[in-house]
Amino acid sequence: GGHPVTTQMVETVQNLAPNLHPEQIRYSLENTGSVEETVERYLRGDEFSFPP
């Protein structure tokens, strides 16, 4: 991942996926670069990993 992630982006995802840890959200956003894509992954039931 190398996309810039803002606190705003993390908070937006958190509102839609409250049971995800912020670190999981941030890591996913760094890989996708997209709030929409991260939320899609969540709704699909994809696994969210923590940063290594």
Rank of each mutant, 00 (worst) to 15 (best):
40 E>G: 10
41 R>K: 13
6 T>D: 07
34 S>E: 03
37 E>V: 11
47 E>K: 12
35 V>D: 01
6 T>G: 03
27 Y>D: 04
50 F>H: 05
28 S>C: 04
34 S>N: 08
28 S>N: 05
16 L>W: 11
49 S>A: 15
31 N>A: 14
15 N>H: 14
21 H>N: 08
35 V>S: 02
7 T>C: 12
3 H>T: 11
26 R>S: 06
12 T>L: 15
14 Q>Y: 09
30 E>T: 09
47 E>L: 12
40 E>T: 12
22 P>F: 10
38 T>G: 00
28 S>M: 14
20 L>Q: 02
46 D>Q: 09
19 N>G: 13
18 P>F: 07
14 Q>D: 01
22 P>S: 09
16 L>M: 12
10 V>C: 07
35 V>E: 05
17 A>E: 00
35 V>R: 00
43 L>E: 09
21 H>W: 07
33 G>M: 08
38 T>D: 02
5 V>D: 03
42 Y>T: 02
20 L>G: 01
29 L>C: 03
19 N>M: 12
49 S>I: 15
50 F>A: 03
3 H>D: 08
39 V>N: 03
1 G>V: 13
19 N>C: 11
26 R>P: 02
32 T>E: 03
5 V>C: 05
3 H>S: 10
40 E>Q: 14
21 H>C: 09
32 T>I: 02
11 E>W: 11
23 E>I: 06
25 I>H: 00
19 N>V: 07
25 I>P: 01
28 S>V: 04
43 L>I: 10
13 V>S: 01
26 R>D: 04
29 L>H: 02
27 Y>I: 06
7 T>Y: 11
47 E>G: 08
23 E>Y: 07
19 N>Y: 10
22 P>D: 06
31 N>T: 14
33 G>P: 00
17 A>N: 03
45 G>T: 00
52 P>K: 06
44 R>C: 05
33 G>T: 04
3 H>E: 09
21 H>M: 09
34 S>M: 02
26 R>C: 07
19 N>S: 12
25 I>Y: 00
37 E>M: 10
33 G>L: 08
7 T>M: 14
22 P>Q: 09
20 L>A: 02
28 S>R: 00
45 G>M: 03
24 Q>P: 02
19 N>E: 13
6 T>E: 04
35 V>A: 06
8 Q>N: 10
22 P>R: 10
10 V>L: 11
41 R>F: 07
49 S>P: 15
25 I>E: 03
25 I>G: 00
3 H>W: 14
13 V>E: 02
14 Q>H: 11
19 N>F: 10
30 E>H: 08
10 V>R: 03
7 T>S: 14
40 E>R: 15
20 L>D: 02
12 T>M: 15
49 S>R: 12
42 Y>Q: 02
5 V>A: 04
48 F>D: 02
47 E>T: 13
18 P>K: 06
19 N>T: 13
41 R>Q: 12
45 G>H: 04
42 Y>W: 11
32 T>G: 06
47 E>Y: 14
42 Y>D: 03
25 I>N: 01
21 H>E: 08
2 G>Q: 13
27 Y>A: 06
47 E>H: 14
29 L>Y: 02
18 P>V: 08
6 T>P: 05
38 T>C: 04
2 G>Y: 13
33 G>W: 06
23 E>N: 09
18 P>M: 07
38 T>V: 07
47 E>N: 12
6 T>V: 05
45 G>F: 01
5 V>K: 02
49 S>H: 13
43 L>S: 07
11 E>S: 11
23 E>L: 12
29 L>E: 02
6 T>M: 07
3 H>N: 11
51 P>W: 04
46 D>S: 06
22 P>V: 14
10 V>T: 05
4 P>R: 14
12 T>C: 09
9 M>F: 02
31 N>E: 15
12 T>K: 14
48 F>V: 02
38 T>A: 02
48 F>C: 02
9 M>H: 04
32 T>K: 01
30 E>N: 06
44 R>F: 05
1 G>E: 12
37 E>W: 05
19 N>A: 11
10 V>H: 03
39 V>I: 15
21 H>S: 14
44 R>Q: 09
41 R>C: 05
4 P>Y: 14
36 E>N: 10
42 Y>V: 05
11 E>C: 09
15 N>M: 15
15 N>W: 13
48 F>R: 00
26 R>E: 06
52 P>F: 08
51 P>K: 05
14 Q>T: 07
40 E>H: 13
3 H>P: 09
39 V>L: 13
23 E>H: 09
46 D>K: 05
46 D>F: 11
5 V>W: 11
8 Q>W: 13
40 E>S: 11
42 Y>R: 00
15 N>G: 12
19 N>Q: 11
48 F>I: 04
9 M>N: 04
51 P>I: 05
14 Q>R: 12
6 T>A: 06
45 G>K: 03
38 T>K: 00
43 L>Q: 11
15 N>E: 13
35 V>I: 14
32 T>L: 05
30 E>Y: 11
24 Q>F: 01
29 L>S: 01
52 P>Q: 08
45 G>V: 00
50 F>D: 04
35 V>Q: 02
30 E>F: 09
45 G>N: 05
34 S>G: 04
2 G>R: 15
40 E>F: 13
13 V>N: 00
28 S>A: 10
20 L>W: 03
11 E>L: 14
16 L>C: 08
21 H>T: 15
39 V>H: 05
52 P>D: 09
36 E>V: 11
38 T>M: 01
26 R>W: 12
44 R>V: 06
1 G>H: 13
36 E>C: 10
42 Y>E: 03
18 P>D: 04
37 E>I: 11
24 Q>E: 04
15 N>A: 15
